[in-house]
Structures are given as C-alpha cells and as structure tokens.
C-alpha cells in the first residue's frame, strides 16, 4: 500500500533520515519506537508530505507522492493524521471541527461538477451531436446534512455527542484527542498516522485514547503509530520498527523485538524504557 524507497531528509547539513526503505501493507498496524531525535516524527510526517523529503520516493497505491505534480491535498485526504497536541481548531465547535473538511471538499467537488456541466452545455450549443451532462445527485444542503449526520455518528461512537457544540478550550485532553481522531476518520482515510497520540495526556486519560485506537485497529484500519507506550505497541502492532539516528535498525514482529531484539541498540533502548 505504501512503499518507501531510500527516503532521505536533511535540514541544512544535518541528515535526519538516512535512507529509509520499507513497505506498509494494507491492514498492518506499525509501531515506530526509538529514542528521542531518532527521526520517528520526521519519517511519519514525510508519509503525508507534511515534511518535504530531500530525496527518495514514497509510493502510495503505486503513485509517487513525492512527485512535484502529485495532488498533495488529494493524497492527504486518504491519510488521517493525529498529533501529539491534538490541534483541534480553536475557533470552531467540536461538530464544526469534524464537519469542516468533508463539507468544504463536498462543496468544492459539487462546484467543479457544475462548472464542467456549464462547459458541456456551452459546447452542446454549437455541436449537433449532444454530450450528456455529468449527473449531479447531491446539493449543498445534502452535503452539509450528510456531513453533520456522519459527525454526530462519530461523536456518538466516542460517547461525546453532548459536546457537539462545545469549544475545544472546554474539553479535557483525552476528549480532545478522541475528537481529533474522529475528525480524521470523517474523511474516510485509508491509513491513519499517529504521532505520539498519548504523550501530552494526563495518565488517567491515556486509556480512553488507546482504547479508541485499539478499536480502529480491530476494525482493520491500516495504521502507523509513533509511540512510547511499549505495552500498547506490543499488544496492538503487527510490526515494530526501531529507529535510531535516522535509520530503521530493526523491523520485526513485536514478540521478537520485545523478547529477543537482535540489534544491541534496540536492546539498550528497551532496557531503558521497559
């Protein structure tokens, strides 16, 4: 599903990713672990081009997304991203946070379709043989209503439907992060990227967020999680990548990484964090 080939990223003269090659298959749950500064976030953020790779390529379903001509916004729609600090839109209510992108994109697609139909009509004026119009089966109101229903359904799923009209500043960290997750889900992404989703949370809220991520994993969502929660990585991941100094040093099943790591750096790291 995602092929990363010799991915490099440098800030000025410091190389942060030193040629990463790996493949992420549909349905895999990949945990990325490793010491601070090893390039975990940078790698994750290259996958949806929040960081511009210096060289190498990333193929998503066969298409190279590092290509300058690739429609990056279209690509990001298929990859949900969840941040350490939630990043809910502060000027929007919970419901608006979830609805914003789907409504905007729905309306934009509708506008494009209408514009194309206008061109077809114009063309048909001057040609004997008529081209058919693109069928339009939706309307602005429908798009909004559907996005709203979907958002409320997602909120219900996480038990926060009563917060629909609340502003993010009134919510707890755990609530914010669960809403950030369903906000990403509202785009129906094919992959979810998580960058330390529980690191900014008070300990008592970590559980509720991990539970939600676990549910998504059980439903078959493909995901890549940068995490310091080793227990969670071991339980949920189908594969664990250990990164150090801009390289993937070890890539294996959680059992083997956690019980019998091959690389001395992995052993050293795990002995510190476990």
């Amino acid at each position: 599903m995602i092929d990363v080939i010799n991915l490099r990223k440098a800030y000025g003269s410091t190389e942060v990713l030193k040629g990463i090659t790996t493949t992420i298959r549909q349905g895999e749950k990949i945990a990325i672990i490793g010491p601070s500064g090893s390039g975990k976030s940078t790698f994750l953020r290259c996958l949806n081009r929040m960081e511009e790779p210096t060289s190498g390529s990333i193929l998503f379903e066969g298409r190279d997304i590092t290509d300058r001509k690739a429609d990056i916004d279209e690509h990001r729609r298929q990859m949900g991203m969840v941040f350490q600090h939630f990043n809910l839109f502060n000027n929007k209510t919970v419901l608006e946070n979830i609805m914003l992108a789907p409504v905007y994109l729905g309306l934009r697609d509708l506008r494009r379709l209408k514009r194309r139909n206008r061109l077809v009509r114009l063309r048909n004026l001057f040609h004997g043989e008529k081209l058919p119009l693109h069928p339009i089966e939706t309307s602005k109101a429908r798009i909004r209503e559907e996005a709203r229903e979907n958002a409320l359904r997602l909120l219900k799923r996480i038990g926060l439907e009563d917060k629909a009209n609340a502003y993010p500043s009134t919510l707890s960290g755990g609530q914010k992060q669960r809403i950030a997750i369903v906000r990403a889900l509202a785009m129906n992404p094919k992959v979810m990227l998580f960058d330390e989703p529980t690191s900014a949370l008070d300990p008592e809220m970590v559980g509720e967020v991990l539970d939600l991520i676990r549910q998504l994993a059980d439903e078959g969502m493909t995901m890549v999680i940068v995490t310091h929660e080793m227990g969670f990585a071991r339980e949920v991941a189908t594969r664990v990548l250990f990164m150090d100094g801009g390289n993937i040093l070890e890539d294996d099943t959680p059992e083997r990484i956690f019980t019998n790591p091959r690389h001395p750096r992995t052993r050293e790291f795990l002995s510190k964090v476990l």
């Binding site: 949806n48 990001r76 839109f89 906000r183």
Partner: peptide, 9 residues
Amino acid sequence: EAGRALGLN
C-alpha cells in the same frame, strides 16, 4: 498543520 493534514489547502 491540522488543516493541511486534513487535505485543506
């Protein structure tokens, strides 16, 4: 970042 990550330009 959050806006861009959702695919908004």
